[in-house]
Simulated assay, not measured.
Amino acid sequence: MRGRHGGWHGPGPESLFGLGERRGRGPWAGPGGPPFGGPPRKARRGGVRAAILLLLSEEPRNGYQIIQEAEERSGGAWKPSPGAVYPALQQLTDEGLIRGEESEGRKTFTLTDEGRAHVEANPPEAPWAEHADPQEWPGDVKAVFKEAAQLGTALIQVVQAGTPSQITEARKLIGDTRRRLYGILADETDEPDENEE
């Protein structure tokens, strides 16, 4: 929506660029999901089952703890849904690989002896290993996305408070910067500029 100065008064840079900070993971991690925002990705088939077996091989956990730990280990890139976790817990219980015990209103699950033997004989691959953890990115990569978040903040301020001519100048500057970024990868780029006047 337009503000009283003719600028935009809408979502901030976190919403537009997916660069919001979340739980201390830095501005390169999108809110509630992977870098640049968007919904958390799904793991490959069997990933929920593997996650449960791996996490329960470490210590007993309830369903909520399994979901939260999987999200944490993937850096927020993957969060299994309750609709996937609880049926998998029931299936593993039916197979005799885990057992659940009620405690303080929650059911805590542990591996059975059969389940522990199964994990040792068939070590599951951690599904969160498929997802890049922003904490493990090189320092330069983190710095680039931090600068991008700050650029987004500056852009929103210009759009909110700037005059039409200032906004036009900002648009041209961003277009030039985008072309120069592509130029880093190649001597020439034929990437079209849809906003050229």
Results as ranks from 00 to 15, higher is better:
R2V: 14
G3T: 14
G6P: 01
G7C: 06
G10K: 09
G12T: 05
P13K: 02
L16Q: 08
F17D: 01
F17V: 00
G18F: 06
L19K: 04
R22N: 02
R22P: 00
R25V: 03
P27I: 00
W28P: 00
A29Y: 00
P31R: 13
P31S: 02
G33M: 06
P34D: 12
F36D: 01
G37I: 07
P39D: 11
P40Q: 09
P40I: 08
K42W: 15
A43C: 13
A43G: 15
A43P: 07
R44F: 11
G47Q: 09
R49A: 05
A50Q: 00
A51R: 03
A51D: 02
I52H: 00
L53T: 04
L54R: 13
L54F: 06
L56E: 04
P60C: 10
Y64H: 13
Q65R: 15
Q65T: 04
Q68W: 07
Q68C: 09
Q68L: 13
A70G: 04
S74E: 03
A77L: 02
W78C: 11
P80V: 12
S81L: 14
P82S: 11
A84H: 13
Y86N: 14
Y86K: 09
L89P: 06
L89T: 09
L89V: 10
Q90W: 08
Q90R: 15
Q91H: 13
G96L: 11
E101D: 12
E101N: 09
R106I: 03
R106W: 08
K107Y: 07
T108E: 11
F109I: 06
F109D: 03
L111R: 02
D113Q: 14
G115N: 07
G115D: 04
R116K: 13
V119W: 11
E120G: 11
E120F: 03
A129R: 15
A129L: 14
D133N: 14
D133H: 14
P134N: 01
P134E: 03
Q135L: 12
G139P: 08
V141S: 04
V144D: 03
K146W: 05
A148T: 00
A148H: 05
Q150F: 00
T153Y: 01
I156M: 00
V159N: 03
T163S: 15
T163D: 07
S165R: 15
I167V: 15
L173M: 13
R179D: 12
L181F: 12
Y182H: 14
G183Y: 03
G183M: 06
G183Q: 11
A186H: 11
A186C: 04
A186T: 03
T189I: 02
E191N: 01
D193E: 14
D193C: 03
E194M: 06
